[in-house]
Design a binder for these strands. Structure first.
Lengths: 186, 186
DNA sequence: GTCTATACGACGATAGAC
DNA sequence: GTCTATCGTCGTATAGAC
């Protein structure tokens, strides 16, 4: 049994980077091999289900990590605005100040398979739910909290699209800055 | 000279629909032929530059039409809030209440060629500029007006991403409803 | 578990008849 | 201008040695 040249975590990491950058369809196996440092057939040994399985595992892992790391401060017992500030800083790192696209966007085009589509939907819902919980703590009804959470997430996703298309990352910075106002009410 | 089975405008229309739905990379020539009702080689007669030329012409035409039709009410001399309301209704039709994705998003992944990328950037800038002009009319400085315009466009683009991923189109409706507040100041 | 080599279908694109 | 037929390449995926 030859030693693993690339750990499972690192493999997912590098695939995640690739899918975020070019999306699902444009990520060819040649690029996947180059990005991971493995040969095509070695990758199939890790993902017998091929590209669809890679996409699904990336989507699932990314949703998990986003929840565990980026959104983690929301579950602390610091003051609400401090928690939101911490999440904003995490988001700035996660999206590299707007330079990196979001998997929810880039992997939801083409035909990445049902499993991936479900994983993306689940990740989006979890994010929105986490934001909505904070809004509720600030006194909003569950309906209003959901709307505020969706507005906040949409603002971030849209700013990332703008950054990719126009190169201007300032809207992303402002979307993060507005986060407290949006979630806590204007 | 055989008669044109599909007019040039209709050809662009159908290609636009396809690219909005699946993006650039996932739009294969087989799908393009099916969507347009022409054979692959007939399409090459119209677009000798192949898929890249199709993408570029679609991006350019879409930017033009968006400016001429969707954003047109902004250039009338009705009261500002009425103009914005008219644009919101146009946007609702253009994006079919959130059911259709935006070309700025779906065609900015993969490698659609330099011409397409430039056309998308130009279209995004024109949209933002049009919104910013309205904000300036409402008394905002040019810096603030730009920020408001970008916030408004990002809100719409993000809501479209959310709609595609989660299936929930309500954030899009709310993004349109917020349009006056955002552009005219809170 | 990784590699080289290869199968083979789908892809973008072209040739040439009508 | 449209079609049928076809080209070469690149795509995903496998086989089998080490």
């Amino acid at each position: 049994m030859a030693p693993r040249l690339v750990s499972s975590d690192e493999l997912i990491d590098r695939l995640t980077m690739l899918f975020r950058r070019v999306g699902y369809e444009a990520a060819s196996l040649v690029e996947i091999a180059a990005a991971t440092g493995l040969q095509k057939s070695s990758i199939y040994h890790r993902f017998p289900g091929g590209k669809e399985q890679m996409a699904q595992e990336v989507a699932e892992a990314s949703g998990r990590r986003f929840s565990e790391h980026v959104l983690a401060p929301l579950r602390s017992n610091a003051p609400v605005d401090e928690r939101i500030g911490a999440v904003a800083r995490n988001l700035d790192l996660f999206y590299e100040a707007g330079a990196r696209s979001c998997l929810l966007d880039t992997m939801s085009l083409g035909d990445p398979g049902a499993g991936t589509t479900e994983a993306l939907a689940a990740a989006a819902s979890a994010w929105i739910r986490a934001f909505a919980t904070v809004a509720r703590e600030a006194g909003a009804t569950s309906t209003v909290a959901l709307a505020r959470a969706q507005e906040a997430v949409a603002g971030i996703e849209g700013a990332l699209v703008l950054a990719r298309v126009t190169g201007d990352k300032r809207p992303f910075a402002r979307a993060l800055k507005r986060l407290p106002e949006i979630l806590l009410g204007h």
